[in-house]
């Protein structure tokens, strides 16, 4: 599946492009490079890559602008590269349709994991009916949740949250995305709902709620459900 997939790397730093090319080629990907936003848009159209790694700081166009251009005509997974200071950039990019993000500096392991997740979501989904992660098992068709084989009771909201995360398992969902999906567009600023409900949910499904392993908090951005 991943073998032979084409990846477009968009970054103005030659060193970054080189190290990404080396490590990704070693993992069997075919690599194209673009150094500017305009070049990126052009090459995406010409080469139709399977995945795009997009740096947010480009010399000509804002990474977010490039992303919006791309999203006008393609659903190709996009992974954002950004620096730590700009949490808001990440959130904006995710809201604008980016699939995931990585904060520089990052390790190739992290990058590979993100690429795999993004690719999986890009595949036409055969609907997953039973989701498992560690001790958690969710039967989406019957709405049954078990932890270590024991059925547990979730409120309607808790279940809605869990189901949403499962649909996007492995990917980060921003606060706004979650609030919009579960509560509705008028609730996108009520982040404290999330704090309260995720704490409850973790109490029910995590082994050690203080150090959660299934539902991970992405500081300043959102939440991610990890497939263990």
């Amino acid at each position: 599946m991943a073998e032979g997939a084409q990846i477009l790397i968009v970054d103005d730093e030659p060193q970054i492009r080189r190290f990404l090319r080396i490590s990704l080629e070693a993992n069997g990907y075919r690599i194209h490079e673009a150094a500017t936003g305009h070049d990126a848009i052009l090459k995406s159209a010409q080469l139709r890559p399977d995945l795009i790694i997009l740096d947010m700081g480009l010399p000509d166009l804002d990474g977010l602008e490039v992303l919006r251009h791309l999203r006008e005509w393609t659903k190709t997974p996009v992974i954002i590269l950004s620096v730590r200071d700009s949490d808001q950039d990440k959130v904006d990019a995710l809201d604008a349709g980016a699939d995931d993000y990585l904060t520089k500096p990052f390790s190739t392991d992290e990058l590979m994991a993100r690429i795999r997740t993004a690719q999986r979501h890009a595949q036409p989904q055969q609907d997953e009916i039973i989701f498992t992660s560690g001790r958690l098992k969710v039967d989406l068709s019957r709405r049954v949740v078990t932890v270590d084989g024991e059925p547990i009771k979730l409120t309607r909201t808790e279940y809605a949250l869990l189901r949403l995360l499962i649909q996007h398992a492995g990917r980060v969902l921003t606060h706004q995305q979650i609030l919009r999906e579960v509560w509705g567009p008028e609730y996108v600023h009520e982040t404290h709902y999330l704090r309260v409900y995720f704490a409850q949910l973790r109490q029910k499904i995590e082994e050690n709620p203080a150090l959660p392993e299934i539902i991970i908090t992405e500081p300043g951005v959102g939440y991610r459900l990890v497939r263990l």
């Binding site: 949490d87 982040t191 404290h192 704090r195 309260v196 704490a199 150090l211 959660p212 908090t217 300043g220």
Partner: peptide, 17 residues
């Protein structure tokens, strides 16, 4: 400051991890 309501327990968890 980007003030938001924080769950300190969650915050400590993230920090420890």
């Amino acid at each position: 400051l980007k003030q938001e309501w924080c769950d300190i327990s969650d915050l400590i968890g993230v920090a420890v991890k």
